[in-house]
Design a protein around this nucleic acid. Structure first.
Lengths: 252, 252
DNA sequence: CGTGTTCTTGATGCCTTTCAAAAAGGGTGG
DNA sequence: CCACCCTTTTTGAAAGGCATCAAGAACACG
């Protein structure tokens, strides 16, 4: 699960013409800033689904931006139980916590095949010294991730099984939407039921039963690894989720 | 709950002689840095137990360092359910997420009477421009808080009631210990059972029953708002908690 | 010493877990 | 293209953990 796929050359995806930047999720950046980002990027790396991006306890984790694909952050208990902490979608910063704390308390795994923009962790410090505006944005992205985890914690602590599933589906749907990944209410949904269960803090069996109950209730359908949200109103009502829309975020 | 207690003057607690700094929890700082912190601090504020420090949705939250007392961060669902996200102890930065994202998705409430060092949020930006080392430390503290929430999420998602309580007690004990708040295995423990329940994602009744079961099992005792950890080994074994000790952290 | 809050305890029911096994996919080699 | 194996998903049945309801006990406060 850890062998590395061959990676393209450094400039295979120039930041200046990065297709992600055009998405509504992201703030505009000046050419100067984009050039600086380009200068920090040392590799464009491909990894297969299931690959470890950061393994638990790793001390020299690099900083990444997820260019394409999905990943997730997780934590293990000594007896093997796993909690999925949050999901990472294109444009998300990967490994900031590990970079700053210099000993990952968590692992990060590729959920699908992914492409990663690789930044050496040492340059994070340069960023703070030379590009305070971008350092501020990095901190901002860190706070945004914390905010996502807050919501997951609230979900797992307070919502029942059906509400948790509804909240997760809505929240992933909205994130995918700002990335232009949704068409006709449908988007790629690569989670296995075991991964769903680990994210929701539920057992596999109960996740499966509740999942199919919500499908039969007409909230959404799945086929060929895609999810179609049939009844967004009902789903967000069941999720008790009325969060305000987030402003465009920086893309590093 | 929101009336403000009279606050002392600006220099009532000079940063240069801040008693917190001597605690093992914190890194040493240069006199220059401490003077800079002093120059950012505009107020030393007292608030009573139960006071709102940041209310949900607030857009102009200041940045604080908790000087004394306990607080907690929480999130509400529209139907009134409350999840306590994490607890704040002396030396913790309060309101960083709210300052950066400029719209608090959460609330922060004083659990006991507290003293707060107040920093205007606008100066956070100055910090990034003029004191990159301290900006880096602020980001570091943000990541540390995220790491604490990761652990709470893992607890609520994967541990049963007894394990959750054990994990919470151990984790608060260790934090109090690095602050010099523990003597003879005992420290102030100001949480009500309702607050415990909201932090653990359990009902009040079940929290009470499990809590007293663990007391009867000899893990710990409580009296007069203090908790005494009688059997740390058993407690941390029950909690499945073997986290490595954290390095000293910056105190802003 | 009354009154409101917090804590405790018992009883009941349901949501969720666990155990078990069948069904459905997915990939590989013949 | 089909047989075969392995993983993932689904379903059923039983047990248990946790929530809810209810009310008494302990505690704090003016």
């Amino acid at each position: 699960m850890t062998e590395s796929a061959p990676s393209n050359g450094r400039n295979s995806v120039p930041c200046m013409t990065c297709p992600l930047r055009a998405k509504p999720a992201f703030k505009d950046k000046s050419d100067d800033e984009i050039r600086f980002i380009q200068s920090m990027k040392i590799e464009h790396r491909h990894r297969p689904a299931g690959a470890d991006i950061i393994h638990p306890g790793q001390e020299d984790a690099e900083l990444y931006t997820l260019f394409s694909g999905w990943a997730f952050r997780y934590q293990l208990l000594p007896d093997g139980r796993r909690q999925i902490l949050n999901f990472l979608l294109p444009g998300d910063l990967v490994g900031l916590q590990a970079s700053l704390l210099s000993a990952a308390q968590h692992g990060i795994e590729a959920l699908t095949e992914v492409e990663l923009c690789v930044f050496p962790r040492k340059r994070v410090w340069d960023l703070f010294v030379h590009m305070p505006a971008m350092a501020y944005e990095v901190a901002w992205l860190g706070s945004r991730e914390e905010s996502l985890i807050d919501q997951n914690l609230t979900s797992v602590g307070q919502r029942n099984a059906g509400e948790r599933i509804a909240a997760l589906v809505i929240s992933l749907y909205r994130r995918a939407e700002t990335l232009g990944l949704v068409s006709e209410s449908s988007f790629r949904f690569p989670l296995s039921q075991q991964q769903l269960a680990d994210a929701l803090g539920l057992s596999l069996v109960h996740t499966s039963k509740t999942w199919s109950r919500l499908r039969k209730a007409g909230l959404f359908t799945t086929s060929e690894g895609r999810l179609t949200l049939l009844n967004p109103r009902l789903t967000s009502r069941m999720a008790l989720l009325y969060e305000r829309e987030v402003a465009p975020r920086p893309l590093i």
